[in-house]
Computed example of a mutant assay.
Amino acid sequence: MDQGDTQGEGRMERKKRETRQKIVKVAMELIQRQGFDSTTMEQIAEEADIARKTLYNHFPVKEAIVDEYVRGASKGLARETLSNLYKLPDTKTRLLETLDKAYEWVEFNPEIVGITLGYRHKNMCRGPGYSGGETGTQSIMAEIIRLGQETGEIRRDISIKRLVMQLDIMRGAVVMDWLGDKSRFELRKEMAKIVDLFINGAMQRDGSKV
């Protein structure tokens, strides 16, 4: 966690954060060792040496624990990408770099990504209190689009939030399709096509018909 995230943090807030981190660590170790379906909330509480009530106060279901783990990984990847972002020449290159790095991680972690997406889709209509906040990939895409608008590459009459949402919808659909049958296409190559679609649109550029 960044130092800036904990500045001004009181004792209770620190204890709560440390407990959540411990739960996530223990739960993911159990899941990686014996599988998601075989891991129960009771096992997680016992292994973390906390009361079940404490566990449920932090996470209502084990899917929420996996979601927090994925969000943490996403923020870590975003921090790594951000350090190199401003050296890249344009919006398309920045998006390609960001999504390639993010979906390389997804390719290695398909099961937990599927669990996370299912959990998020189930909660997306329940209001902002259930969303878990902005992911690392969303934050880095917002910064890329902001830079693109600043340099005139990206139109300014559509908000950054709306443009990020459009990218989210497209990349989410691709991931769900890939999770259904990973042999049909290469995920990172398909994401590169999504970036091209976002930047250039769907019209055939050379005038030919397919």
Score class of each variant (00 low, 15 high):
G8H: 00
E9M: 12
G10N: 11
G10W: 11
G10K: 04
G10M: 09
G10T: 09
R11Q: 13
R11L: 14
M12G: 13
E13R: 06
K16C: 10
R17N: 08
E18V: 08
E18C: 05
Q21F: 12
K22W: 07
K22R: 05
K22Y: 03
V24I: 14
L30A: 04
L30H: 01
I31A: 04
R33V: 13
Q34P: 06
G35T: 06
F36W: 11
F36V: 06
F36I: 04
S38K: 15
T39V: 07
T39R: 01
T40F: 08
T40G: 08
T40H: 04
E42P: 01
E42F: 14
I44C: 00
I44E: 03
A45W: 00
A45H: 01
I50T: 07
T54V: 07
Y56W: 06
H58R: 03
H58C: 02
F59T: 09
K62Y: 06
A64Q: 09
A64I: 12
I65G: 03
V66L: 00
D67A: 12
D67H: 10
E68P: 06
E68G: 03
Y69H: 12
V70G: 02
G72Y: 01
A73S: 04
A73F: 01
A73N: 07
A73D: 07
K75Y: 11
K75I: 12
K75S: 12
A78V: 10
R79T: 14
R79S: 11
E80M: 02
L82R: 11
L82N: 06
L82W: 09
L82G: 04
N84A: 12
N84H: 12
Y86D: 15
K87R: 14
D90N: 02
D90E: 04
D90K: 00
K92Q: 15
T93C: 03
R94P: 05
L96D: 05
T98S: 14
T98Y: 14
L99P: 06
L99D: 07
L99I: 10
K101R: 13
A102T: 01
Y103Q: 08
E104Y: 10
W105D: 10
E107V: 02
F108R: 14
F108Y: 14
E111T: 11
E111A: 14
E111M: 10
I112R: 08
I115E: 00
T116K: 08
T116G: 08
T116A: 00
T116Y: 00
L117M: 10
R120K: 09
R120E: 01
N123L: 12
N123Q: 09
N123K: 13
C125A: 15
R126F: 15
G127I: 03
G127S: 05
P128M: 03
G129M: 08
Y130M: 10
E134I: 11
T135H: 08
G136P: 03
T137Y: 05
I140P: 06
I140N: 04
A142H: 04
E143F: 04
R146M: 15
R146S: 08
